[in-house]
Computed example of a mutant assay.
Amino acid sequence: DTANSFNIRWFTPTKEIYLCGHATLAASHALYEAQIVPSEASIFFHSLYNGSFTSTTGADKVIRMDFPSTPIAEVVLTEEELTCIENAIGVDRSDILFAGRTSLDLVLELTRSAFSRVSAIVDYAGIQSLCGRGLVITCLGKKRVVGKDDYLCVSCGGHNFMNDLNHDFLLRGFFPSIGLNEDSVTGSALCALAPYYHHKFSSSLNSDSLSNDADTEQVMLNSYQASQRGGSAKVGVRGDRVTIVGHCKTIMHSTFTV
């Protein structure tokens, strides 16, 4: 339906980028709220670098975005890379449980204690030297800790995210090469981490501890991005597609005279 089809592009302050989940969420919300697209219809977006994808909503006003998944290929880090990581984010190489690369980023799964110790003062120049777009770090959420007795007192905006039992996994994203030292919430990182954690948790995907999305009939995982602002998202996987579920709220209307 061409009436509900739109081209979309995303820009940081310095570069055009491959994918931006937040901006797609905002664009979808604006199209639905302005009734340019009726709430019962899907929005079809077409991008230059990431193919086509859809957004849908319903009576709950929640927006469900369907993106291509991003594979993570496991890598062996060089001595130079390990030293750079240790210096850049203040963790020890023994804290790295998994290292992989997507087409965009270096992805590291850390121990929970190491993730909680990553300094607010990060060496962004060091991260930029790792090549690619940037660095994504992640760890298990408290919900996934056996025994749940590892109390780690770290908060973001008053939210002690390390001990929130709602989170399946946590992440942070550093992208100095595109003008974002640390991103608030990163949809493109979720497109990689959703399949990674779905595979990791595959033995418990039918557990009652997981939430289900009735509209997409998918098992959903709860993520939390522990940036300064912080942000939660539900993510699901179906084949080679990732569903990211989020809310959006209009806080300002503007009129431009051209």
Rank of each mutant, 00 (worst) to 15 (best):
6 F>V: 01
7 N>F: 09
9 R>N: 12
10 W>I: 01
13 P>T: 06
14 T>K: 12
15 K>R: 11
18 Y>F: 13
18 Y>G: 01
19 L>N: 06
21 G>I: 12
23 A>Q: 12
24 T>D: 13
28 S>T: 06
29 H>R: 13
34 A>M: 13
34 A>R: 06
35 Q>A: 14
39 S>F: 04
40 E>T: 10
40 E>K: 08
42 S>F: 05
44 F>Q: 04
44 F>A: 12
44 F>H: 15
46 H>M: 11
46 H>S: 14
50 N>I: 02
55 S>I: 03
56 T>F: 00
59 A>R: 13
63 I>D: 11
64 R>N: 10
65 M>C: 11
70 T>P: 02
70 T>I: 07
71 P>Q: 09
72 I>K: 03
75 V>H: 10
79 E>W: 09
81 E>F: 02
84 C>D: 08
85 I>G: 00
98 F>M: 01
105 D>Y: 12
108 L>W: 03
109 E>A: 14
113 S>I: 03
117 R>E: 06
117 R>V: 01
119 S>L: 08
119 S>E: 11
121 I>K: 09
122 V>G: 06
127 I>E: 05
127 I>K: 04
128 Q>R: 09
133 R>F: 05
136 V>Y: 05
138 T>P: 10
140 L>T: 07
141 G>H: 11
143 K>Y: 06
144 R>A: 14
151 Y>F: 01
157 G>R: 04
157 G>C: 09
161 F>S: 07
164 D>I: 08
165 L>H: 15
171 L>A: 05
171 L>D: 06
172 R>C: 06
174 F>L: 07
174 F>I: 02
176 P>A: 15
176 P>Q: 08
180 L>K: 00
182 E>V: 15
187 G>N: 11
187 G>P: 02
189 A>E: 03
191 C>P: 13
198 H>Q: 14
204 S>C: 07
206 N>W: 05
208 D>G: 05
208 D>R: 07
209 S>Y: 07
210 L>M: 15
216 T>G: 07
217 E>Y: 04
218 Q>T: 13
218 Q>P: 10
219 V>F: 02
220 M>L: 10
222 N>D: 06
226 A>V: 02
228 Q>I: 14
228 Q>L: 14
230 G>Q: 05
241 R>V: 02
245 V>K: 15
248 C>K: 09
248 C>S: 15
251 I>G: 04
252 M>T: 15
252 M>L: 05
253 H>G: 04
257 T>M: 03
